[in-house]
């Protein structure tokens, strides 16, 4: 089974550059604006798109993504409407891979089988579900693979040599290396350590390795792109959304362009590194 994610990484490899993976929150600050932002991402330089599924209790996220989720929920976003975003996006783009990222409870309540079917039909390619480690693979990971979706696992600085094979089993699409032991949007990582960790993971798998957490600027992106197959940027984009809002927290004429400008800048950082 080849997914859009596999195709995209293979194409970029032959182009000789890393992928830019962009994260934005579905429904932030409202459903229509989030859809406009997501539609504008590929032209701005995003190679893959992660769409956050808002959750009240995002235990691995820092203040920026927590706040984005709460803005989206306050605006009425649900998991059903998040899948609608993907459906709308696919009408104009059949190639850019879409990954839904979030926490298990909303999916569990939606119903795992129905969710997987709806997500696949809408044009979702992969899932990142933070609180489903390999120990709970029967819950979502295995059903997702069976439904034809990639299940992208997080590897972290605490994932040692002994545990790595367990994390990599049942992982597909790519491996998401979390650059720091911490929450999203926290400290800038030590790029040397990240390069070593990525090299170590690559000894265990042929899957592409993308690196996220703490990437804020084009320079950060260049530094990561040297060793990794992909660079993930999330909190910085979500912050760009927040800063563009008016005093009532509503979207403005600048919201979409604030995000696309930052994506273009970071994309230039990724593309400057030839491999």
């Amino acid at each position: 089974m080849t997914t859009r994610i596999d195709t995209r990484f293979a194409a970029l490899k032959s182009e000789g550059r890393a992928a830019l993976v962009t994260f934005v929150m579905a429904g932030d600050p409202d459903h229509a604006t989030a859809l406009d932002v997501i539609k504008a991402l590929p032209a701005a330089g995003a190679d893959l798109i992660e769409i956050g599924m808002p959750f009240t209790d995002p235990m691995a996220d820092g203040p920026a993504i927590q706040a984005a989720g709460l803005r989206a929920l306050a605006g009425g976003e649900t998991l059903h409407s998040t899948i609608d975003i993907v459906r709308s996006f696919r009408k104009g783009d059949s190639e850019t891979p879409i990954i839904l990222m979030g926490y298990f409870n909303p999916i569990y309540i939606y119903g795992v089988e129905v969710f997987l079917k709806d997500a696949k039909e809408a044009g979702v390619d992969g899932l990142i579900v933070v609180d489903c480690p390999p120990e709970e693979d029967d819950e979502l990971c295995k059903p997702a693979l069976k439904a034809g979706l990639n299940f992208i696992r997080l590897a972290t600085p605490t994932t040692d040599e002994k545990r790595l094979p367990k994390v990599l089993s049942n992982t597909s699409g790519f491996v998401y290396y979390v650059s720091i032991a911490g929450i999203t949007g926290a400290a800038t990582p030590d790029f040397g350590k990240v390069a070593t960790a990525v090299a170590r993971i690559k000894m265990h798998t042929d899957l592409p390795v993308a690196v996220g957490f703490g990437v804020k600027t084009a320079a950060d992106a260049s530094a990561i792109a040297k060793g990794a197959d992909g660079v993930v940027v999330g909190s910085a984009l979500v912050e760009a959304v927040r800063k563009s809002l008016d005093a009532d927290g509503k979207a403005t004429a600048q919201t979409v362009s604030a995000v696309t400008a930052l994506v273009s800048e970071i994309a230039a950082g990724v593309r400057a590194v030839k491999k």
Partner: peptide
Amino acid sequence: GGRFVAETLMPL
């Protein structure tokens, strides 16, 4: 029950 935690915490 179970162990629904982020990978960073799993080894811990």
